[in-house]
């Protein structure tokens, strides 16, 4: 964990409520895809935890969906704004455990950490299958970016406007050789994927209302088969076998 100032370099609107933000600063505390940052915003008492989409030595790429006042304010910050950021929070995905046929499944804004994960898997010589799910065609984003990485990309929308009509679980069922999943999305989606019979293992990224974001306050602890775990510090990635619904 590191506390430092980042400078907002640019903001790009991706869909009606989804934005891409690039922040420059010291990313040395970021060690794995799936980690998150916790951003202080003027006028808000608690920080806002945002998943890291990707990072370089001196820049963070974040995808942000506007869900409340905090994220509303964040996407309206002008370039040049300095933000107090806690970086390198959480455990992150362990991409060495995915085997030969990993599948990355993301729903909505939950696709964000899968981008950095896919890139690092490709760098490590593994070509992941990526299944992305959205409500509708107009809600889809980052398809081109994922394609450019060179992974095998599958898309599902609930209304069938784009890709397969259905959910990411329907995508996974069509690639039965994929037996290990890296998953991020809304809780019902995590639960549905968790129940897929074809999976021998998987890593699931959880969301929670957090107090501190760095393990001090116990505000986000959840029961697991290994006892209570703090989503912010021991997670946000929990392993398939330890998850309790």
């Amino acid at each position: 964990m590191k506390q430092s100032l980042f400078t907002l370099e640019h903001t790009r609107q991706l869909t009606g409520d989804t934005y891409e933000l690039v922040l420059s600063g010291d990313t040395s505390a970021v060690t794995a895809p799936g980690q998150f940052v916790n951003i202080q915003l003027p006028g808000k008492f608690l920080r806002r935890p945002i998943s890291i989409c990707n990072w370089t030595e001196d820049a963070l790429l974040l995808l942000v969906r506007v869900v409340g006042e905090g994220t509303h304010d964040l996407v309206r910050c002008v370039p040049g704004t300095e933000l107090d950021v806690l970086s390198g929070l959480g455990n992150g995905f362990d991409l060495t455990q995915g085997g030969a046929h990993p599948i990355l499944l993301g729903g909505g804004i939950g696709i964000a950490p899968l981008y950095g994960l896919a890139q690092r898997m490709l760098e490590a010589g593994v070509t992941p299958t990526v299944g992305l799910g959205f409500r509708s065609g107009k809600d889809a984003f980052y398809l081109e970016e994922f394609s450019k990485l060179g992974c095998r990309l599958l898309v599902a929308t609930e209304d069938g406007q784009l890709g397969t009509k259905g959910f990411v679980t329907d995508l996974a069922k069509n690639v039965r050789e994929c037996d290990y999943a890296f998953v991020c999305g809304p809780t019902p989606m995590l639960k549905a994927v968790h129940g897929l019979g074809q999976l021998t293992g998987g890593q699931f990224s959880f969301e929670a209302r957090m107090g501190c974001g760095f393990g001090a306050c116990m505000g986000c602890s959840v029961p697991t088969t290994n006892g209570y775990k703090r989503v912010c510090k021991d997670g946000p990635i929990l392993y398939k076998e330890e998850i309790v619904w």
């Binding site: 008492f45 209302r209 107090g211 116990m218 986000c220 209570y228």
Partner: peptide, 22 residues
């Protein structure tokens, strides 16, 4: 183990917590 989730809510100039002595 403490209380069920969610345990945290933001307020004007502060926060509510119901961690429950975990």
């Amino acid at each position: 183990p403490g209380n069920p989730q969610p345990r945290i809510a933001e307020t004007a100039a502060g926060m509510l917590n119901a961690v429950g002595l975990q």
